[in-house]
Computed example of a mutant assay.
Amino acid sequence: MFALLFVLPCFAGDQQKAEKQLRKISAMAADVTARGIVSRSMADLLDIPRAQLVRERRAMNLSYGSVFLAHHLAGHGIKMLDIALQLQRHKNILQIANEQHLDWKQVASDAKKLNGKFEDAIYKHFLRSDPDKSRDLAEKYDATQDWVNADREVTEPEVEEAQAIYVLWRDRAGTTGGTEGVVTSSERLASSRLEEQAHDVGRLTGRAPTPK
């Protein structure tokens, strides 16, 4: 009995840690520019086409954090169609994961690794963005079209935290230089009032205006 009472809080703690990391993924994707970086990084980690991620998000109305969790479920033998049907029955992705006894500790670890990849990808993007732009064109990816209602569910503090991480690595790349050198003003998303407004609009509509 005492062992069970000890195990239950541990599971709850693991789920809370996992949810925090998943929401960080979703918050980073709330910005229209960062969304492209999230899309590339997640597609590479899951080894699937970016177009598939876009289709799944649209079909099931899932944020990037939630679609990452859906792929964890799929990795444990749950078909995406079954997940979609359960979502249509008004279950949420967390309920489905709990019913399948998903390993929240592993989810938290994998989501944390993905968030770390975002930081590396942001840095590399601002060192040299041409490869990312070329890939977007080749894959016909448009971040302004990669948006669902569930993307609204992130909170303002979560967006601000993601924004701070984004700006940190963007500015480090600008300081380092690289093949492209200085970050252009059109790529700066968060250091001025206009940029703050861009994040607000992007969070609500998925189509943040680009600062001039």
Rank of each mutant, 00 (worst) to 15 (best):
H71A: 02
A29H: 09
G116D: 12
A74C: 13
G177Y: 00
V182S: 10
D130P: 08
N98Q: 15
A18M: 08
R152G: 03
D47C: 00
D136A: 13
Q52R: 12
S192L: 02
E160G: 03
A74N: 13
H101L: 13
E99W: 00
S192R: 06
H76N: 13
V201L: 14
L204N: 10
A162G: 09
S129T: 10
D110P: 01
G177P: 04
D103Q: 09
Q95E: 15
D171F: 01
S129R: 15
R58I: 07
L87P: 05
I93M: 09
R207L: 04
G13Q: 11
T155V: 12
R207H: 11
E161D: 13
I37L: 15
I122Q: 05
D130V: 12
S134D: 11
H72K: 09
G202S: 05
A138S: 12
M1W: 08
F68N: 00
D82V: 13
Q21H: 12
I78H: 02
N92V: 05
D136N: 14
V67G: 03
F126A: 06
R57C: 11
P9Q: 07
M60E: 10
V67I: 15
N98E: 07
E161V: 12
P157N: 12
M1E: 07
A162P: 05
R58M: 11
A43C: 08
L87F: 07
R207I: 14
V159C: 15
D171Q: 14
